[in-house]
Amino acid sequence: MYCAHDIGFSAGGRHLLEAASVAVRPGTVTVLIGPNGAGKSTLFKLMAGERRPQRGQVTLDGIDLAGLRPAQLARLRAVLPQSVHVAFPFTVAEVVGIGAARGRDLPARIGRALARVELGALASQNYELLSGGEKQRVQLARALVQLEASEGPGYLLLDEPTASLDLAQQLLVLRLMRDLAAEGAGILAVLHDLNLAAMVADEIVALKQGRVAVRGTPEQVLTQACIADLYGVDVRVGWAPPTPFLLPQAASRA
């Protein structure tokens, strides 16, 4: 289990997180939602180990992240950041291989990861010449190579993985997240699109002003009352079995 326990974090005199807790179980997809400034990015960075919480702790299978060296942590979890600019003209395949343990089978692992994000044909392209959506998927493939080599179940943290993708690619990434969970990995994703969250999440954790406002299955969290409380808008919530869906067209200020 990948857990944040009672996290407190402030910066610049603002309380960004207060007593926030999240638990990511192997084989499940947990999605963080919440309005802008709710503390999603901060919580994500603390879970990834980039920053240390001022109160509380983040643990991975019972071990405090503070006690792990970067190399040890990298063998337990992989991270997909939002957008990545690469400083030198690396090829797509080289970017995917960065950070992976080298070995005879690395080219094959890179090829498999690129095939999973449907970018196998671009392996020898210059990364910086790709579109935003393609770059995003290359980074996802890089995280997949790292995840595949992880010890134990493996955890994957994704920050807005669908942000710059078209509809077909959004669905591809959601399907990939479900597949990885089915293979046993624990997935934590920050998502802004609530309909995508409803489709992919086993559990949704909604943050508001640095606190966990509500958590539960998509049906429990994505209700008219909860959305009104979180975002201050009144939306109609429909039902597209097996998940709820939101119609922004019918929204009004709550």
Binding site: P70, A71, A74, A78, V79, H85, I98
Partner: peptide, 14 residues
Amino acid sequence: DALALGEAEAFHVG
């Protein structure tokens, strides 16, 4: 190589 992606990303890969 990893730093070419950025400092946070280099940390992510270990």
